[in-house]
Amino acid sequence: MTATLPYLGYIVQGLTVTIGVTLAIFASAMVVGAFVALGSASEKLALVFFARTYITVFRALPELLCVFIVYYGADIALQASAARFGTPYPDISPFAAVTVALGIQFGAYCAEIFGDARRAIPKGLHEAGDALGLGPFKVVRRITLPLVLVNATPALGNLFLVILKVSALASVIGLEELTRRAKIVAGTTREPFAPYAIAAICFLIVTAAAGFLQHYLERRSQFGRRAVKP
């Protein structure tokens, strides 16, 4: 343990990278999921087919496989492009690669979450919006979108925690996030337990904070929606 203490700051600094890549993946997944959910709810059969196929394929693939395909696939594509046009060969950013790979994959889960949240909205609310003279855009902006976010909050919170843990896969392509730094320190000090224990504590702290925020948002989203008892 004493040999690990001088590296404590180095390990903890990796937590900022872990949080950063988690937020980037989560934001990308929400954007992708929103568009796929819209396609799945479309009246055009081609869009529905594409959306359902996308969801089925990416929910079936392992996360690590997606990371390897995007990282090494982009590397091959950039090598071929550089050789063809005679341009310098750029390095692949592990941060960008894992964000794209897992953002696309978890976008399939977000699409299902948004779809379920939309289907949970009573049709009478949309009819009430039409009766009040609201146009389709205002119905979506003032009724559908807020209620979708409210209904999706618990599932999105759980998905965020999953992404936080899966973000450790970024270490396999060289991103120095929390677990990779713990591995480096473990190899340097020959004390594997202490660095990984510190990493585990960091994950527990972030998970606890995210869980607290999730419960807070759930309580806030339910404010005013509870039935008033006589």
Rank of each mutant, 00 (worst) to 15 (best):
P230K: 00
K183D: 15
L156T: 02
R180V: 02
R225H: 11
L134C: 03
Y54A: 05
T153E: 08
P6A: 10
P195T: 03
I163M: 08
A80Y: 08
A117F: 04
P62V: 02
G73S: 10
K183G: 09
A194N: 10
L61S: 12
I92C: 01
F95Q: 03
Y89C: 05
T189D: 01
V206M: 08
D130I: 15
P136V: 07
K229A: 13
T16G: 13
Y72P: 07
A208G: 14
P88I: 04
R180M: 05
V206Y: 08
I11L: 09
Y10L: 11
E63H: 07
A108D: 01
Q105G: 02
P94G: 02
D91L: 14
L213D: 05
S42I: 04
V150E: 09
T207R: 06
K123A: 12
L175T: 03
Q222Y: 13
A210M: 09
P146M: 00
A97P: 05
P88G: 05
F212L: 11
N158L: 05
I104P: 03
S42E: 10
A3C: 04
G211F: 03
K138P: 00
T179P: 10
E127G: 10
A170F: 01
A34L: 07
G133N: 06
F35P: 00
M30C: 15
A197V: 10
F203T: 03
M30K: 01
